[in-house]
Design a protein around this nucleic acid. Structure first.
Lengths: 343, 343
DNA sequence: ATATCGAATGCAAACGTTTGAAAAAATTTC
DNA sequence: GAAATTTTTTCAAACGTTTGCATTCGATAT
């Protein structure tokens, strides 16, 4: 029972009738320690499985080597890709990642951040939740900034903070996607938009609109409907689109999930893709290459985003006092597959 | 610059010319504190954004409220589902999850565990890496057990440890999958096996073998090839299978990824699925429902596994001294789709 | 024999918080 | 106005580790 208490430096000191300082120095190969003492102590420590209590060190040095990652969800491919990217860079540097999932809830986001600050996390990667944006609150962020804890926005962001951020060029990706549909010859292009207010949604929406404008195509309000980033949320809106008197001949979904939902509905209605209706998604999730027909989409480099975000964090950390926030915008890339290739 | 140092209880005490104890008690609504004092201190604390240093508390109470999750990867659907399940139960209880990715490497696994122990993590969920099993080392685990840190195995496990574990009934899932193929009328059923040694691989393999035996079907060694759980690793083995003088008329893949890899190769060879060759996977990952044809598979309840594992952890934590490890085995369930439905 | 030096070790403070026990202050009682 | 009582506050130790400075102990040089 008692054996479960971890061995401390004091325990070892008692055993050798010496002071904790000596043990500490012996374990850390301090030169001023007698060779024999050092060897004996190190051997004994190994034998009893001594493991330095990093908590006490954290307190002493005010360094925790832990970072917070606050994301709306981890069940999407993209988010895990980002986390993997963060991991790739930061785990080898000794950082520990504390993953917090907000489920798109403002309250959970607030609590997560508060918890991370209490735990003296050394940096926070944040992709804000949908509710947060809707609510328009950002006191919980003020808090982080006041602490001068490096805060890196990932993808979803607030425009009005002096922080670093890593985002994908959603605007041009969307623009390219829609332009591709136009070039194929689609005339009535609908958009299944993401939730209002989020930068991601709005940028893609803007790309859609501006591309239509550029090509002098009419913007039909009834062809723009909101969805929620997941498959289910696309079902009803797509049905409504296809039941219109003048239905669209192509749909640009805010992400792959939504496009796949639309694909389902279209197939159920007996429409042929891409002959009767063209489809484009966004994300280039692995699944998009295996749907039937395979889905034209816009590649979003999640792993790279994670790695870039790490870099931004490290820059801010090592930056001397006069730190200037950086914004990294990675290009997105159109991936043309079958779902839009009407000949 | 200086403003970034977090406000401490001592700072507040100085401000009110009182002792830290008073501040601490005031903040914690201790009854023995004067109402006015309490209010003033609380107000001021809020104003300056005081946030309790949990690190110091961890040291004092020997409780860190953090748990380790050590997994080979997070880029598969199943793993993230498990993590989500863990999250669902444990985040509301105030636990923080430290995710460590081993990339199937023994060394990384060892280091991760060591780090988690040093950080005085209160429990560890472990899905052992492939290399670890191959190497046969388990000293790093002895260490965890010696510390009496609750260790919960997830899916991949060692047989010979007295720990709790949550696994899916791979054996019967595989058995059902193969039996389904047989019932449809497939005669030459190949198996793309996972890496040798891992329980997951071996159980599914055993299900495959025993089902063939039960139905008096010959076991052809050349129809059993190893893969690595990912799409790419299935390509070559499948090619070899299809180039045999007497090729299989069905393939049971160790997971969906592998089955999808096989599907790719089969289609490239001009084979029709399920008419010319039947395919079954394992996992019921979201992608499996959207491949063409959709993939027959075995559902593996990742979220549930995560939640059950949490329960096991909590049991062990709250259990009085005489703790007996539990093994939870969740049933897997055959999901029949198009890839095996030859009429 | 004593001063000097170098090597090895110990002391004490610090990180931020909580908490039982003691002390101080305020209030009540006679 | 003093004693008793209650309310409020402070003291000190503890958690585990590191580290500048002081100390001790031999040994060497004078």
């Amino acid at each position: 029972m008692n054996s479960s208490r971890p061995v401390t430096i004091k325990d070892i000191a008692r055993r050798f009738r010496c002071s904790p300082s000596t043990v500490s120095r012996a374990l850390n190969d301090h030169p001023a320690i007698n060779e024999d003492t050092r060897k004996n102590i190190q051997e004994y420590a190994k034998e009893v499985g001594y493991q330095r209590n990093e908590v006490s060190l954290s307190l002493l040095n005010k360094k925790t080597a832990s970072l917070g990652v606050v994301v709306p969800t981890i069940s999407n491919y993209y988010e895990t890709a980002v986390i993997e990217g963060l991991h790739t860079v930061l785990q080898p540097m000794g950082y520990t990642l504390n993953i917090c999932v907000t489920n798109e809830s403002y309250l959970l986001e607030k609590e997560s951040l508060s918890k991370l600050l209490s735990n003296r996390t050394e940096g926070i990667f944040l992709s804000v939740s949908q509710e947060t944006y809707d609510a328009g609150y950002y006191e919980h962020l003020e808090n982080v900034i006041q602490r001068k804890t490096p805060l890196i926005f990932i993808d979803r962001e607030y425009e009005d903070f002096e922080t670093s951020r890593a985002t994908v060029d959603d605007y041009h990706g969307a623009f390219a996607a829609v332009e591709h549909l136009i070039s194929i010859g689609y005339k009535q292009i609908a958009h299944l938009k993401g939730p209002n207010g989020l930068t991601v949604s709005e940028q893609r929406f803007k790309g859609y609109i501006n591309c239509l404008k550029k090509h002098n195509m009419p913007i039909r309000e009834e062809l723009i409907l909101n969805t929620n980033f997941n498959v289910e949320s696309a079902i009803l809106p797509t049905k409504r689109l296809l039941e219109l008197a003048s239905p669209p001949d192509a749909i640009f979904g805010v992400n792959d999930q939504v496009a796949i939902g639309a694909m389902r509905v279209a197939k159920d209605k007996g429409l042929r893709i891409p002959q009767d209706i063209g489809l484009v998604g966004f994300d280039n999730s692995p699944i998009s290459a295996y749907t039937f027909p395979s889905l034209t989409t816009v590649h979003r480099p999640g792993r790279k985003i994670g790695m870039e975000a790490s870099r931004l964090f490290l820059n801010q950390l090592n930056g001397s006092g006069d730190f200037a926030p950086e914004s990294i915008v990675l290009p997105s890339e159109l991936v043309i597959r079958e779902s839009s290739l009407r000949i």
